[in-house]
Design a protein around this nucleic acid. Sequence first.
DNA 1: GCGCTCTCTGAGAGCGCTCCCGCCCGGAAA
DNA 2: TTTCCGGGCGGGAGCGCTCTCAGAGAGCGC
Lengths: 346, 346
Amino acid sequence: MTETASRPTLEAVAARAGVSRATVSRVVNGGEGVREPLVERVRRAVEELGYVPNQAARSLVTRRHDAVAVVIAEPETRVFADPFFALQLRGISKELTAHDSQLVLLLTEGRDDHARVGRYLAGGHVDGALVFSLHLDDPLPGLIHGAGVPTVFGGRPGWGDGTRGIAYVDSDNRGGARDAVRHLAGLGRTRIGHITGPLDQTSAVDRLDGFRDVMVDADPRLIAEGDFTPAGGERAMRELLDRCPDLDAVFAANDLTASGALRALREHGRSVPGDVAVVGFDDMLPVAEQTDPPLTTVRQDIEEMGRLMARLLLRGLRSRDRAEPGVGGTPSSVVLPTTLVRRASA
Amino acid sequence: MTETASRPTLEAVAARAGVSRATVSRVVNGGEGVREPLVERVRRAVEELGYVPNQAARSLVTRRHDAVAVVIAEPETRVFADPFFALQLRGISKELTAHDSQLVLLLTEGRDDHARVGRYLAGGHVDGALVFSLHLDDPLPGLIHGAGVPTVFGGRPGWGDGTRGIAYVDSDNRGGARDAVRHLAGLGRTRIGHITGPLDQTSAVDRLDGFRDVMVDADPRLIAEGDFTPAGGERAMRELLDRCPDLDAVFAANDLTASGALRALREHGRSVPGDVAVVGFDDMLPVAEQTDPPLTTVRQDIEEMGRLMARLLLRGLRSRDRAEPGVGGTPSSVVLPTTLVRRASA
DNA sequence: GCGCTCTCTGAGAGCGCTCCCGCCCGGAAA
DNA sequence: TTTCCGGGCGGGAGCGCTCTCAGAGAGCGC
């Protein structure tokens, strides 16, 4: 085995092409202002030597890294095991790849990791960060925002009172929830319950708000708190049935919750959608299509969210590079629309 | 906003502490051979200035990056949407974090990306690579192995005829399959069918081999090819029922497949496990526990696989750093045991 | 034909760090 | 006391690249 024979340098390419380092550098970085014959000669030399620029040397002087950190702050095993992040990552990856940026993944677990992540981001290893932190009380977003690293959040951060300089990408949780509940109402259902997600997450709060937008004076007993898991959904559904046996519809805060609810309903001998209509949220395919009956749910385009996050960040970085820093450059947030997907459960 | 005031350098710390750059460097990198009072002074200066080493400058000279690429070659949307990779990533992340290495995620989609990944890895941006490529005909593993980057594969690569210098971590797919089938046989089942995974993946092939190990002269009509999806499982199950109505058990190559099979069985009025016993593979919780009835399945510790991959790679890197290159240092592969989890379906 | 402009190329400095060497100084041996 | 040794520290080179700046040609107008 040849044991990684030391890589050719710019110098070597220059020598082979019979030009200066500067010219090679120009060609490698786009070839602006170099005449065709030289470009050709350099290209050939690069090819022949198998030259690949040394990124470390490059970013030492440019102070750019063409790398973006993706921070997933997730204390709970559960959430990481669902396809949500995988899909977002895919969207992010596609967009970054298209712009020749690398994706540095930072998964945090527990508070001890916060410091590590903060240090890493502050250390200027990456050009920017995409952060997923779903919990209201998570100190991480604040930390990161404080570190002065350009950042786009995935999902509305609970922290901070508005859009003040914080860019985020989110689904229209509230609007989607409204659609779901209106759909149920449109089916003639009147006793519509809601199983929430964990209310320390903005998405859960927003969906609850959407529910309330439609059911303005809903019986508070028609609302039970879940935790985005099937088990939580099952438990909450039992509570609801217990408190309001006359309930004829349920809007579950996500598909997993809905699947648990379906189980509880079956167990109590209620038919779906005959006795009780059920709507979920997410349109998580492996779940929504597998339930019995298949789930009517609110779809959010998760991959697109990821793509947008990356696009927002990169755009911000580029404008920062070009223009004087100034105040501008803070990309505005984006809220993606949702669509109701009708299957058999409602 | 202070706009990232230029970061303090080693020089600055040295000046503040009244020592030379070299001494600061020594302290920052472990403090060997520096007397206590000086160490203390340097530490304080570092603290006061908020010094963070510039990784680019450092790796320019050390040629180490403290970063590992994770390559997930996955043409299919489907597989990425399952928790499998998420769990592996988590294991990998934990192990890398513990050794102060970063995780650079490369997702490839389609052949065009291969070149990109190859270039990136050959470019010496990372110290090593962890590669997931599940398809027999995938050129990527070869490419990577050729690039001379230390690599550990996730799952036995179909490519290459043995362990010749290739390190990988895999579950004992064959053994697990044997356990599953023996369990069914132990229940007194005699007409045991198998729904395979896509046979261009080693895991699917190994599970099929395991099935054959026990059912040495199985009726070939008892084997139907699936694709690791519920839909594929459903279709294959129908085929099996069609060909062998007397079948009394099925070993499905994974849990998703099993869930599809369950649906087909229900549709055909067969009770589970009464008429037909079903065993899956993976113990993918959101699926295995949600099916009706809950799935008896073969559990593999996916997160542990990830952790092991990282550990193997890092160990290899370290021994390569220390010792003369030589031939050694190729870490041996690891095959993790599986365990049968009994639920209601068999 | 001469000078001027404009474009293209090359020389050189320097990004922030590590690491090799050589110097210095304190203590032990002579 | 002098000599020798060794551990602790600093000086300096250089990792591979980019980017500024100045110089060399080529082309044009007068």
